[in-house]
Computed example of a mutant assay.
Amino acid sequence: MIELTKLNGNIFTLNSLYIEQIQAFPDTTITLTNGKKLVVKETEIEVVKKVEQFYQKIGLTSIVAKNNQSNDGG
């Protein structure tokens, strides 16, 4: 889960596993897997960093790294 800020200043927590894409229009717009769009104050880079930190915290990055090594023949 990551903490983000809506444009009106309200803080909310998002399960980042449901993020499909992040774009800057210039406001950062997050599209979820269900098609819902959220606009946040954080930059695209800030959101990506928060997602990466969350994945590291739950141990998902090591699983992804192992799968990539297996697919590369390593």
Rank of each mutant, 00 (worst) to 15 (best):
M1N: 02
M1R: 01
I2M: 06
E3L: 08
E3S: 12
E3D: 07
E3T: 12
L4Y: 02
L4G: 02
T5W: 08
K6A: 14
K6R: 14
N8I: 03
G9Q: 11
N10H: 11
N10S: 10
I11G: 00
F12D: 04
T13G: 05
N15P: 03
S16P: 00
S16V: 00
S16C: 10
L17R: 14
I22W: 06
Q23L: 09
A24T: 11
F25S: 09
F25V: 06
P26K: 03
P26T: 03
T28S: 09
T29Q: 13
I30N: 04
L32R: 02
T33V: 13
G35P: 04
G35F: 03
K37F: 00
L38W: 10
V39R: 15
V39P: 11
V40G: 01
V40T: 02
K41P: 02
E42W: 07
E44H: 11
I45H: 02
V47L: 03
V47K: 03
V48F: 05
K50Q: 14
F54R: 12
Y55L: 15
I58M: 01
G59V: 06
L60Y: 13
T61F: 01
I63F: 06
V64Q: 12
V64C: 06
A65C: 04
K66W: 03
N67F: 13
D72M: 09
D72G: 04
G74C: 04
